[in-house]
């Protein structure tokens, strides 16, 4: 690994000089896409020096952290514990996330929406559906895959039930909207990978509405409470619990949809798909570059 001799595998000079596409079956040197031989990792001496330099840094860092922890008095936990009854929930983490630091969570879900849009726009070719047509053409969970469909039938409803449970318990137990959203996203990933669900990409209107619903719920709630409390996202007395629960439900669904979109919009169309070129000739989905076509970035207009 760090040694100079082992870092240069058999493939130092074998990558094709064109720099593109492993051209032929060469069993001794698999593609650097999947096996990094370390040809580009820089001089070993420099790597060793950097490693040596990081050792004292680590020791200083750990000692400094220890000193910092010793000198800090735990006032913030006491403050949170003192004011927790006013938040309407009994789980301090949920209280922090949705009441004390509501702005933080609002901006977090905004970042998620931004990431979803960014990932989607990286690969504009997949305008309509996130999975290749063959996935759903093979007949959903049923046809010829009894084991997979049985697993899905067991796991997906359990995941949904658990997600509802986690959202519900978030106010009093260690759980909450993000955990539930992540679990729902796991179920969604399962369904889309298995080819049962053919998820829409972020271009679809329902997806956009649901994904924006988290942010919108926060903003609307924040403004709606303004006349009562005079501050953005400051819940009126007695309303904190239902408002937080509603926000958590919206958040869980939004997080789940966004995470599934992040998963669906990144994956590929492994083979060249002419239909997508017709849809968006300049979209250059990875599918085009994956195809054996020697001129992936064709400048001429159709």
């Amino acid at each position: 690994m760090m040694g100079p001799s082992s870092s240069h595998g058999p493939g130092v000079s074998s990558p094709s000089p064109s720099g593109d596409a492993p051209t032929g079956p060469d069993a001794s040197s698999p593609s650097p896409l999947l096996r990094d031989h370390g040809e580009r990792d820089g001089p070993p001496l420099l790597r060793w020096l950097l490693g040596l330099f990081l050792v004292p840094v680590g020791i200083l860092l750990a000692l400094g952290l220890k000193g910092a922890a010793g000198s800090r008095d735990p006032r913030i936990p006491d403050l949170i514990a003192k004011h927790l009854p006013e938040t309407g929930v009994s789980n301090p983490v949920t209280g922090v996330l949705l009441n004390f630091r509501g702005y933080d969570t609002l901006l977090e879900i905004a970042v998620l929406v931004a990431a979803m849009v960014a990932v989607w726009s990286l690969d504009r070719g997949q305008r309509h559906f996130g999975l290749p047509a063959s996935a759903s053409a093979s007949g959903g969970a049923g046809g010829g895959r009894p084991f997979l469909s049985a697993i899905l039938r067991l796991a997906v409803p359990t995941a949904f039930l658990t997600a509802v449970y986690l959202t519900w318990m978030g106010s009093s137990e260690p759980a909450g909207a993000f955990q539930a959203g992540a679990l729902l996203a796991g179920a969604g990933v399962l369904l889309s990978v298995a080819g049962v669900l053919r998820p829409l990409t972020a271009a679809a209107l329902p997806v956009r509405i649901v994904a924006a619903g988290g942010v919108a719920g926060f903003v609307v709630t924040g403004i709606a409470v303004l006349p009562f409390t005079g501050a953005f996202l400051a819940y009126p007395e007695g309303w904190a619990y239902p408002l937080i629960l509603g926000l958590e439900a919206a958040l869980a669904v939004a997080v789940a949809v966004i995470l599934v979109e992040l998963f669906v919009d990144v994956p590929s169309i492994p083979a060249h798909d002419a239909a997508l070129d017709a849809v968006d000739p300049y979209g250059d989905p990875l599918g085009r570059a994956l195809a054996p076509d020697p001129s992936p970035a064709d400048p001429e207009a159709p």
């Binding site: 990558p15 720099g19 593109d20 596409a21 492993p22 650097p32 896409l33 990094d36 580009r40 250059d284 990875l286 570059a289 994956l290 992936p296 970035a297």
Partner: peptide, 8 residues
């Protein structure tokens, strides 16, 4: 990687 064919 898709455009350059190289992971670097």
């Amino acid at each position: 990687m898709a455009r350059t064919g190289s992971p670097f």
